[in-house]
Each structure stands twice: as C-alpha cells, then as structure tokens.
Design a protein around this nucleic acid. Sequence first.
DNA 1: GACGCGTGGGT
DNA 2: TACCCAAGCGT
Length: 357
Amino acid sequence: MTSSSGTPLADFASTIVQWQQEHGRHHLPWQGTRDPYRIWLSEIMLQQTQVATVIGYYERFLQRFPDIAALAAASQDEVMPYWAGLGYYARARNLHRCAQTLVAQWNGRFPEQSADIATLPGIGPSTAAAIAAFAHGERSPIMDGNVKRVFTRYFGIHGITSERATEKALWEQAHAALACAPASLDMIAYTQGLMDLGSQRCTRGRPACAACPLQAGCYARRNACQHELPTPKKKKAIPERLCLMLVARHNDHILLERQPSPGIWGGLWSLPKYEDRLTLEAASLALGMSGAPPQKMAAFSHTFTHFKLHIEPWYTEVGSGGAVMEVGKGRSWTAIGELSETALPAPVRKILDGLFF
DNA sequence: GACGCGTGGGT
DNA sequence: TACCCAAGCGT
C-alpha cells in the first residue's frame, strides 16, 4: 500500500458539499428525514444493493413497519416477505433483531453516537457513521464502496481495499479530511455528496472526470490511472453445483421447506432441493401415491457471489388418493394463492411464477 | 484475513 | 457470454 503526499486537503470536504447541493441527489425516498429508523432501514437495504432496486422495497417495508416498535413487535415470518428477492437475508434477520434490541435495551430509540450505534446487530462502522451523520450531523466518516473509489483515486491510495493496511489508510484519510474541514461543514451534504460523487462521477468504468469538482487535485486524474484504482482484487473461480427442485402440487397447494439460518436463503421458504434424480423421485414417492413420475421442467442457472447453481425444476402432482405426508418440521403445504405473500428466493419465485401466474 | 452471504444491472 | 460489481457485516 502506497499513497501520494502533498495533495490539497483543506477544501476537499467543502468542495463536495457545494457540489452536492448543486448537482447531487436530493429526492431519494430516504432523504429529507432525520428519523433514525428510516435512515437505518435505507442504509441496510442499500448495502451491496443498487438504489433503483431498493426504492420499491423501502416503500413497502416502511408502510408495513412504520417505526421501530412495529418492527420489533412483528415475527420474523412477518418480516421476511418484505425482504424476499432483495438478497443477503441476514440483513433482514439482523434488522429485526436490532429493532428488538432497541426496545429491550435502548428504550425503543436509537442511540445518538455512532460508537453506540455500531454495537447493534447488522450495523458496522460505516453504517453507524451514516446513521449518526444523517440523523444528528455527527462528524463521523463513512467508508463504503463509493467513498473507497473516490478516496483511492483522489489521494492515490494503492492496495487492495479489503487489506488491513489499505483499509487503515482509507479510514485515516477520511478522518483527516474531516479534521481539515470547517466547523460549519454540513455533514449531511458531505456524506451524501461523497456517495453521489462515487456513484455519479467517480464510477468504476468510465469516470466523468471532466464533470468532477475534485478533478484539479485528483491523483488518478493527474497520473491517468483512474482504471488502476481502486486496486483490483484477483478473482477466484467459483464452483458450480447442480440442484433439483421439486414442485409438488396437491390440489391447490405447493410443498415448501423453510431454509435454516445461517445459510443460503436463511429464513425464506424454498422448494425441496435434491442433488440427483433418484433422491428427488424417492422423495416424491414418499409424499403420497402419484399417478405419474415427476416431469422435468426448463432448467436454468442462478449465480451467487460464491457459486453457480444449475437448477432443474421437476413437477409432480400428488394424487388425492394417497395420504399427503411430510408436513410439519419446517415443511408446509402452501396455497398457490398465498405464494405472492410468501418469502421466496428469486429463483423459486421464478419457477412458481412461470407455472401459476 | 478469508469466507459466506443474493440479486440485478452494466459492459 | 461472462464477468464486474453496488450505500458491508458477521463469523
């Protein structure tokens, strides 16, 4: 990890504030509020997730769970359908846990200081700083993907950003930028401005340097190395797996299995999964006497961060003549009409929507 | 420090 | 197509 020296710093934060006020985003659904609950919800949803994806989920979640008390009073089964399809479901489980922690230990309200906020489930240092800055104007720096891009390029910080030394340099630079800023700095505009700059100007592919307010002092611009920063991390080949999913229908019901957490899709309901055809057929038989063996449907693949799943859906109708077995212990015959309100992972939703809707 | 954890969009 | 990633955190 190396870094340049002598980069102008005094006007860094003020420049970003001024730019944000003129060119930044001001009408996102979670802007214009100081309500820590709304700010928190948006920050969690936005982790590793794009703004356009979040907006609909945010509005629906807020309508159903308008405040900490409403969320804390709900069960996890009531919460998960409002997160289904958004991914990284531990975020929703931690969100729910956090609401209950706030009620039990913090009088139902968020603590004000980022150091306290960061002790809560699912809230790390960057999210805690964002909540404290947006809700109370606390002068704590965030350090997300956008800020890392802006900082590595502007200050010439080389090194893979997840490595300890680089991470440390980034946080120290973030604190230094704030320490040099005027006492009157608008922390809301600064925090938002850093993210707006990262997402609208200092983009990964083709950064719009000519329209960037920091272009004059930018290390990467000066050295024409925008594409080398942030230092790219070597990627690892991801494994591939085959997964057979059984769509077992009994009258107007479909068999679903609750996914354990932690684990993939933890807290959601999936179709029963099998590694091979023999296992799937045996399971199908165990459900009850069926007239016909399971039929293979159109296969497709779904890529996760860490592996690629080849999915084969198999359809079978469980005859009314045989007893319908295997209910309970994390299994459920769910009415087709209730699927739209069931917390299903995206690929499962895709299979069932294709069949019934 | 490495890995587990989703999904949809951009190139 | 295949790959890169996007407002990270927990273990």
